[in-house]
C-alpha cells in the first residue's frame, strides 16, 4: 500500500521536458560575458526559444543588445520561474521583490532586455513598476524623475492644461517615494 503511494500511478514524465531541464545553453552578453542556463529556464524567453528551435544557436547564443549586468538579472528571474515546485504565490512574491529594489536606470535596462528577449511576465512586472513611479505625480515631478526636457512654450503648455483641466486634479504633492 505504502509503496503504491510513493509511485503514483498515471503520472507520466514528459521525456522532452526532462531533457530541457538537464540540457544547458550558454548566453553571451554584449560585453562578452558568458552565462550557463538550463534550456527549460532559457526558453521562457520566446526569442531564445525561437533561436533554439531554429537551431541557429550552435552552443552559444549571442545577445548583442543585453549587457552582462542586465543579463545576470534576467537569468535570476528565468531560473526562479523555471524552478520545480515554486508555487504561483512564491513566484508572485519573488517578482514583487525583484523589481521593487531596482533603480530607475536598471528598470530601463531590464525593460528593454525583456522586450527584446520577449519575456512576457518580466516585461509586465517592470512596466507596472515604471507606471507606479508615474502614478498621481505632477508633470514637473515626472519630468524631473525621468529627465524629460519640455520643448513646449509656457503659452502652449498653459493652453493644453486648460484643454484637459480635469486631468490636473488628484495629483499628489511632489515627494519622492
Amino acid at each position: 500500500m505504502a509503496r503504491k503511494n510513493r509511485n503514483p500511478v498515471g503520472k507520466n514524465v514528459d521525456p522532452e521536458a526532462q531533457k530541457k531541464k538537464t540540457r544547458t545553453l550558454t548566453l553571451k552578453s554584449s560585453d562578452g560575458q558568458e552565462f550557463s542556463i538550463s534550456e527549460s529556464a532559457a526558453v521562457l524567453s520566446i526569442a531564445i526559444e525561437n533561436m533554439v528551435e531554429d537551431d541557429c544557436a550552435g552552443g552559444v547564443i549571442p545577445l548583442p543588445l543585453v549587457d552582462g549586468g542586465t543579463l545576470a538579472r534576467v537569468i535570476t528571474y528565468l531560473n526562479k520561474h523555471a524552478e520545480d515546485g515554486a508555487s504561483d504565490e512564491e513566484k508572485r512574491k519573488f517578482d514583487e521583490e525583484f523589481v521593487s529594489g531596482m533603480e530607475m536606470g536598471v528598470l530601463f535596462d531590464v525593460v528593454l532586455a525583456a522586450n527584446y528577449l520577449d519575456i512576457r511576465g518580466l516585461l509586465r512586472e517592470v512596466r507596472r513598476r515604471i507606471a507606479d513611479r508615474m502614478k498621481n505625480k505632477s508633470v514637473e515631478w515626472v519630468r524631473k524623475t525621468f529627465h524629460i526636457e519640455s520643448d513646449f512654450t509656457p503659452e502652449e503648455e498653459e493652453q493644453m492644461k486648460k484643454e484637459f483641466a480635469w486631468a490636473w486634479e488628484g495629483v499628489d504633492s511632489d515627494v519622492d517615494d
Partner: peptide, 26 residues
C-alpha cells in the same frame, strides 16, 4: 523606449495620469 513598451506602461496608469503625459514634451 520602443512605442509598444510606452503604450504598455501607459496602460497601467489611471486616465488622469495618461492624459497628463501629453504635456511632458512634444
Amino acid at each position: 523606449l520602443p512605442t509598444n513598451v510606452i503604450d504598455n506602461i501607459l496602460k497601467f496608469l489611471p486616465l488622469h495620469d495618461t492624459v497628463r503625459t501629453s504635456v511632458l514634451s512634444k
